[in-house]
Design a protein around this nucleic acid. Structure first.
Lengths: 212, 212
DNA sequence: CGATCTGTTGGACAAGCGCGCAACAGCACT
DNA sequence: AGTGCTGTTGCGCGCTTGTCCAACAGATCG
């Protein structure tokens, strides 16, 4: 039962998409070539015709998923004017309710980073991307006078890491902390981190990007 | 080449110990029955004579490793007098240089929590244990007047999550942040979180527990 | 001393893994 | 119509995995 012929770039995208579908069900660690092939309805050999190794497939899939989230957040922030509103958009992008499976991919990526070089460098690059996004906003806010912060790099890492650490609990341990609480607690700490008045930071609605 | 005969409980401990030795070299995810058997110098069949499945072996090993760290930290804090010194001991236990492999186990546990019920409930229980330890110290400090905090539960989760989030970067992504910096940044945020003067919080030396 | 109990062996087993390769099939171009 | 070109197949290689089990051996006891 042959599968429809595709152009190389379309086929590559299809493989990446199928990998994500499988990975969000089974996790990166136990997503196999045969799983992806079965999801796509093609043979396992085809995957290796487009990717050097399974590691590359997983890295490409994670890159697409997490990269899209980063770009969407960046775009949502760009629509806001002023560092305070931009920070509000940043937290709103975390607050979206459909992201549990996406964050599970982060957990998988962090755990596998030490053993899968391509996946490791991808998650590293994207993590730094998030930190840079925050740091730029903080620097802007300090210039304008909205924020007070003498080490934007450290502050950005702290805000991001707190958010990651709390989100980790919500996803890995279920009902210990709920997502809503994690966001609120992060925002409280961020207000303190950047020398703002309590309650100064509020969520800014973000358009829901399509999942395709 | 037969191995020495042991009592059931001794043998069980030896298996758990050997599992940790292997896991700290190869990581949790790729520790196999044969690895453990080779480390122990026994046959692979012996492992299954004591454990229902490999999952049980890994869960028991994680419980022992992470549980021991928690107990050691608890003991080190108990040796200090006063919440401030106890908090210093808490951070000192994170600052020990030999813990990268132990934290990798946490990454594996968090990632697998959603798919492996036994491992998930173990990591959940231990994570809550760490948070409780912090929360108790904070409550004590508020009573004494050393700390100012109107939501000890939230503060404890924030401090722990920040520490986890930063440590995650040092372990998963290598040189993005070094351990020393992660500790310092966490302590700075903790001082702010608990209404202390900058620099009030200092590391308290903790006796290095033996690895056996 | 022989019987018994049980900790231990070592390999068999099926299943699953990433990966490579010769052959096939459908499209574009002459 | 014929001829490349290339997306795609399907299988097999070598290896690793968790699990199981009949047989072995060393301690204990009547």
């Amino acid at each position: 039962m042959p599968v429809a012929r595709m152009s190389p770039s379309d086929r590559r995208d299809a493989i990446v998409q199928a990998t994500l579908t499988v990975a969000m069900r089974k996790g990166f660690g136990s997503t196999t070539v045969r799983d992806v092939a079965a999801e796509l309805g093609c043979s396992s050999g085809l995957i290796h015709h487009y990717f050097e190794s399974m590691d590359e497939v997983l890295a490409a899939a994670f890159d697409q998923s997490a990269g899209r989230d980063l770009a969407a957040t960046e775009a949502a922030m760009a629509e806001q004017s002023g560092p305070l509103a931009q920070l509000g958009a940043f937290f709103a992008s975390y607050a979206r309710g459909d992201q549990d499976w996406a964050f599970q991919l982060w957990l998988d990526a962090w755990a596998e980073a030490a053993r899968r070089p391509a996946l490791g460098s991808t998650s590293r690059r994207l993590n730094i991307g998030w930190q840079q996004l925050l740091e730029r906003t903080i620097v802007d806010g300090v210039h304008v006078g909205t924020f007070a912060c003498d080490d934007p790099r450290a502050a950005a890492w702290r805000i991001l890491s707190l958010l990651d650490g709390l989100a980790l609990q919500t996803v890995a341990h279920g009902s210990v902390i709920d997502r809503q609480t994690a966001i609120e607690w992060s925002m409280t700490a961020t207000e303190r981190e950047l020398g703002m008045q309590p309650g100064a930071l509020t969520l800014r609605a973000v358009a829901r990007p399509s999942l395709t």
